[in-house]
Simulated scan of single mutants.
Amino acid sequence: MKLTKGDLDVGYMPFGQNLSNLLQLCLLYKLGGVYMDTDVMMLKSFSKLNKSIGTQTSDLGSKNWSRLNNAVMVFDKIYLLVYKFIEEFALNFNGVGACVCRLRLISSVIRRMSNQGT
């Protein structure tokens, strides 16, 4: 039940994996385009997607997300939201393996920006 609600603590993440997550955000910011994890299976064309991000958990009834995931991201280059992801990473990563990028960072940045009306 915790997993479907997005309340599960993801625990430790190796430094290299955090660095990889940061690199994918930097490349997406600088170049734009599609980022997709290697374990994602594409069933339809992404050609009509723009400014999109994958959902980690959502309510099937309301279709509202509770947690997002950076396994699939489609953004224009130099896009403000991607910059905010990088900024959040820089402000919160403590270097000891805390998982700051994948499950919490993306969702918290979008929630904060939504609350600010940006």
Rank of each mutant, 00 (worst) to 15 (best):
K30M: 10
V100S: 00
S58Y: 04
N21Y: 05
N50S: 15
L25P: 00
E87V: 06
T57A: 03
S20C: 09
G117C: 08
Y29D: 00
I110D: 00
V96W: 13
N94M: 13
M113K: 10
S45L: 08
N18Q: 13
T57S: 02
T55A: 09
V82A: 02
T4M: 08
T118G: 05
M113D: 07
R67K: 13
S114A: 12
Q56S: 07
G97H: 01
N70D: 13
N18S: 12
G95W: 04
S114G: 06
R112H: 06
E87S: 09
Q24G: 06
M36I: 13
L19A: 14
V100E: 02
L23S: 10
G54R: 01
D9E: 15
F89P: 00
N18C: 10
N70Q: 14
S47E: 14
K51V: 10
K77W: 06
S58R: 00
N69G: 03
I86K: 02
Y79S: 03
K63R: 15
T55Y: 03
Y83Q: 09
S20W: 13
S108G: 07
R102Q: 12
V10F: 09
Q116D: 13
T55K: 03
K44S: 05
A98V: 14
L68Q: 00
L60D: 12
G61L: 10
G54I: 01
T55C: 10
L60W: 11
Q24P: 02
N115C: 12
F85M: 06
L60N: 12
Q17C: 08
C99I: 10
G33K: 03
V40E: 07
K30Y: 10
V96Y: 14
K77D: 08
